[in-house]
Structure formats: structure tokens, C-alpha cells
Design a protein around this nucleic acid. Structure first.
Lengths: 214, 214
DNA sequence: TCAGTCATTGAACGTGGGTCAATAGATAGT
DNA sequence: ACTATCTATTGACCCACGTTCAATGACTGA
């Protein structure tokens, strides 16, 4: 449409533009639907130019996914200056916000790209690991040492949260506050169901009391 | 290689053969790596014939995924003649077995195909819903009514189990029995963290006592 | 104004999905 | 056994799309 003459940009600017454009297009299409043709047309460049900045469509896709994941991680960063439980609650709240604002974008990522190559999988593993690590840090501040089982449980819990939020958005059978409440409570429940701790410790967490000091 | 003459099969037999072949090939390749060329070569037929039985490669892929999912569902069917908790434990055990025996096959499915079209997503939603429904039935037998939140929690729990088993297989930092134990315990923990029930009820579950009769 | 650098283009190629008219393996009727 | 009919099967063809590359032209410094 816009048949302007050649527009010459610096490599950094062009590359950044293409990645950002890819992330934006994720709002309406799945990652695997981002064809070279579509990108080029949207950016007003020729198909060939894409390969001047990315060695293949696959690499372009991973860069787009990396940028989108980084954006999500940034948006949901917990406020470590606040008490651990509040920080966790705040991060979960931010996560719900993020998914609510970019539902398609997020689904395109989590459900749409998990397939691809090893590098793509690494991006998602890292993203989940980052989210899990934040939680583990919070738990550590609460005075708990995580066993291997509890560590695995935390990673599983991240998947639990993702699934719950996505499904909740599709149905919305109760309000946001209740979702936030159940997600926050589910973490200590899961983490402790995976440990040998006495039931009393679990209860102290769920009832929001201070953990028993060692 | 096997340059035999034309082999003429009945439509049902040929179609079944192709789907079964597709499922077998999933053990070594991701779903999106099942090219028409590969299928045809493996089956000893021409590429064109595939389109006599499936309207598109996409439809073929969904049929393969459907068959693989059905196989998994069948393999993990709970024994309803046993007490609810034992049935749950048995189903989880069977699920671990299944993933252990077909790790690549399973990963190809869960992580590799979630992307695709709406129909493909429906298959996975149905599979998870089936697994969740079984659990919900077990809980109902225990005398509990599930709230909307608890229902969502069960669906999320299925994702939790999938993630835990897949990650456990890759690292195996503790033995199978411990995994089974933590997964079994995690369900009541999660379901109840999503409900308004008193902590006492949760404790009664976790300590394996009878639920308090209403 | 000129030369040189390099972002950019557009034509061309290869691969793989999808179509279709022609072919041949089975079966039934004689 | 022979022939006719049916249809599973083929192979050539088309096209969309990722990818390559030599040619082009927009900028910079001299």
C-alpha cells in the first residue's frame, strides 16, 4: 500500500523494529502463523531483507518469543521490598493482569510455540524457571528449605498457575479476587504436600501465621 | 526400497494403517515433523494417496493426535472398583508408567502440538477435561461438592501433574515412589486451597482420615 | 561531486503441501 | 477364462513459502 521509496535504517533499528512488530502481531496470530510474507508486508520491506537480520524464519521466531517472554517477566517482577507473601500476591496479580491484557498474545506463546525447536523450548523452560525461582526465593525468605520434591512442585505450580489463569479468563465463573486468593493459597499447599513437613506447618501457612521457628 | 507393485487395501485398513504409523513415528519425531513425504515413504505409498484419506496434512495430524491421546486415556483409566484414593493413586501410577515408556511420544504430544489449529486444541482440552473429570468423580465419591474454584483447580492440577512428571523424568532426583506420593497428596491440597473449607477438613484429608460427615 | 559502503531489493530456486486425470488391482457376472 | 466395472493408487503438475544472491541505490566522508 504505502509505496514509498526505500527507507534505509540502521541495522539495530531495523532489527528492533522487526522483533517488536513480530510481538505485536502475536496479539492476533499464533507464532507459527507469522509468515515471512506477513512480516515483510507489515514492515514495508521486501521478504529478502528479513534474512539480512535473521538467519532463518525459525531464528526470527525465537527472537520474537524471547522478546515477548522478557516482556512478561518484566511485567510480573515481584516487589522484593515488601513482605514475602505480599510480594507473591503482587506478582500473581501482575501476572493475571498481563494475561488479561494480552490474552491472545499470551496464549500464542504458551500454547502456540512450545512445540518448535530446542532453542524455543529453552526459552520457555527459562521463563518458567525464572518464575519458579522467584517463588523459591520467597519461600526461602519464609525460612523454609526446599527439598528436591518441593522444588519440582514449585515448577509444577507455575504450570498450574498458567493453566488456571488461562481457563479462568475463558470462563470467568468467579471474580478476579477469588482467583488471586486461590492461586496464592495454592502455592504453600502444593509445596508442602511435596515435603515431609508436619501438617502443623502447613496449617500455619494456610492460616497465615508465622512459620514455626526452627 | 521395497519396490513391490501396488498394494491395494480397503479404505478402512489403509486409513487405520496410516494413523497407527503416524503414532509410531511420534516416538522419534515431533508432530509437526511428520511430513507427507515421510509418511508416504514409511507406508510405501505415494504422497497423493494420503490426501485420498485425509483432506489435508493438518487433518491427518489431528487424527494422529486423537489416536495417541485416546491411547493415553485408555492406559490410565482408573479402577473404579477400588476405594477412591487408591483409584486415584493407581491412575497416577499408570500415568507415570505411560510417560516413562513413551517419553518422547508424550512430549511430542503435550508440548509439540498444543500450538496448532482449533481442532487440535480441542483434542487436548478434551483429554485434560477427561482426566480432570475422573478426579472430580473420585472427589465426589469422597463426599465433597466442588465449587467453581475447586473445579478450576482440578484442571490446573492436571497441568501440574503433567509438568511434574515430565520434569521428573528428565532429572530423576528422587525415586518414583516419592513422586507418586507427592502427586497423590497434591490433589487434595490444591483442591482444598481453592475452596472455603475449614483447615480442619484439609488436615483430615492430608492425614488420610475420613472426611468429616456433614 | 565523486567513491565507497552497505542496507535493500527483486528475481530465481528448492522444498513440500495439495490437485487431478490416468492407471491398474480387485471383484462380479457371463 | 474372459471381460466389464469399480475404485484404490499413482505420478505429474501447480503453487505457496522459505531462502539465496547478484544488482541497486541511499547514505557518508572526502
Amino acid at each position: 500500500m504505502t509505496a514509498t521509496k526505500r527507507v534505509r535504517l540502521s541495522p539495530e533499528a531495523r532489527r528492533a523494529q522487526l522483533i517488536e512488530l513480530g510481538v505485536e502481531l502475536l496479539a492476533t496470530r499464533r507464532l507459527d502463523e507469522l509468515s515471512v510474507e506477513l512480516i515483510a508486508q507489515s514492515a514495508g520491506i521486501s521478504r529478502g531483507l528479513l534474512f539480512h537480520y535473521f538467519s532463518s524464519k525459525q531464528e526470527f521466531h525465537t527472537e520474537v518469543a524471547r522478546a515477548a517472554a522478557a516482556e512478561m517477566i518484566r511485567r510480573t517482577e515481584p516487589d522484593t521490598s515488601r513482605p514475602p507473601v505480599e510480594a507473591l500476591r503482587g506478582a500473581l496479580s501482575a501476572f493475571i493482569d498481563y494475561v488479561e491484557e494480552n490474552p491472545d498474545n499470551y496464549k500464542s506463546l504458551v500454547r502456540g510455540a512450545a512445540s518448535a525447536d530446542l532453542e524455543m523450548r529453552a526459552i520457555f523452560d527459562n521463563t518458567r524457571a525464572t518464575m519458579a525461582q522467584r517463588v523459591i526465593d520467597v519461600i526461602a525468605q519464609l525460612g523454609f528449605e526446599l527439598s528436591d520434591r518441593a522444588d519440582l512442585a514449585v515448577h509444577g505450580w507455575v504450570a498450574y498457575v498458567e493453566e488456571c489463569v488461562i481457563r479462568w479468563i475463558d470462563s470467568r465463573r468467579f471474580d478476579r479476587e477469588q482467583l488471586l486468593e486461590m492461586l496464592t493459597k495454592s502455592l504453600p499447599a502444593v509445596a508442602l504436600s511435596a515435603s515431609d513437613d508436619e501438617v502443623g506447618t502447613l496449617v500455619s501457612i494456610l492460616t497465615d501465621q508465622k512459620p514455626i521457628e526452627q
